[in-house]
Design a protein around this nucleic acid. Structure first.
Lengths: 180, 180
DNA sequence: AGAACTTGCAACATTTATGTCGCATGTCAT
DNA sequence: ATGACATGCGACATAAATGTTGCAAGTTCT
């Protein structure tokens, strides 16, 4: 792949994320314009609109997997790992919120998501065994809340804040709520 | 309005909610089919697709406002009110999730949402004054988390559960999280 | 420098959703 | 019963997004 082409592909993917996260019904025209290329160029690189969205999902999923991979450990205390993973995921999801919310037809994407979810469950069980999460907590519900908090944080008005600070607030809320 | 017409309008609104909550990109054809009417009939009742969606939002917003109105009190303890409002809102949002997530162009809809949000803030302040919510909690963040939990609960796999039970779990999570 | 590749542009084809109309048939309300 | 209204159906009109192609001009890489 020529350096030329790679730049264009990246520009299109990033523009598509910007445009579609604001307006999921936007057309190829608007995406092309945001990327600074002609509409035909988008079609040259991505056979169809669906192919483009799938490529976005694949790209975002790769970064997502990397983010989890780099932060996940079984050696550090569960609280530390939870914090690191959260911050790491937030950094990706702030930039690729639309692409990550698409459940692509690509089975590889689905596989990665399932794998991450499995890791999340493992981490939560470890946190429960460490006494961080209450012994009678519903871990399925806990995971759903955790995902919802990540989504809210990543799409909310705090996107310019430090990911570590956001993760601290998120994990604190997850573990203690707003009561005394 | 003839009794005839009213039934049709209702059927269309409910079908549109069912169809669009599954697939926001669905066309008038699919909505009409789900409602058991011809596509032209939908166009007779709603001038355009946008008009239909706006009508859905208006309809759902009315029920939303009623739900809050009927459950909100300033006399009962904050915890009781919080629980009742939550259960009441859940009952509506489970059935009208798509319509409620649309911020309609109708200013009346926006007004109601702003009003409910104001009430939510008042209730949270009352909860804080009562010691239910920690004195140093960020109430803006608390409201965002509360909304996110409602959204997750209403769109998640628990829709057939009892709204009171869901509200209990939701409020408990909001106040105490999953820690010990 | 030169081959291979990429891009923009304009034009065209196709598809799909949307919106409109008239008319025959059926339903409602008084 | 009867006038007024609603519906289904088929046909039509239109607009917009999508996808394709050929070619001239520019870029990359060796």
């Amino acid at each position: 792949m020529r350096s030329d082409t790679e730049r264009t592909v990246r520009a299109i993917l990033e523009a598509a994320e910007r445009v579609l996260s604001r307006n999921p019904a936007a057309g190829m025209e608007q995406i092309a314009e945001a990327a600074g290329v002609a509409r035909t160029t988008v079609h040259r690189r991505f056979a169809s609109r669906d192919a483009l969205v799938d490529a976005m999902a694949a790209w975002a999923t790769r970064r997502f997997a990397e983010a989890v991979e780099s932060a996940y450990t079984t050696t550090a205390p569960a609280l530390v790992t939870l914090h690191q993973v959260t911050a790491s995921v937030l950094r990706v999801k702030i930039d690729w919120g639309y692409a990550m919310s698409r459940t692509a037809s690509d089975p590889e994407v689905a596989r990665v998501h399932a794998e991450v979810r499995e890791r999340c469950d493992k981490l939560f069980r470890r946190a429960r065994d460490a006494g961080l999460i209450s012994a009678d907590a519903d871990l399925d519900w806990a995971r759903r809340v955790y995902y919802a908090l990540i989504h809210e944080t990543a799409t909310g008005p705090d996107q310019d804040h430090d990911a570590d600070a956001l993760a601290t607030r998120l994990v604190d809320t997850l573990l203690h709520g707003f009561g005394d």
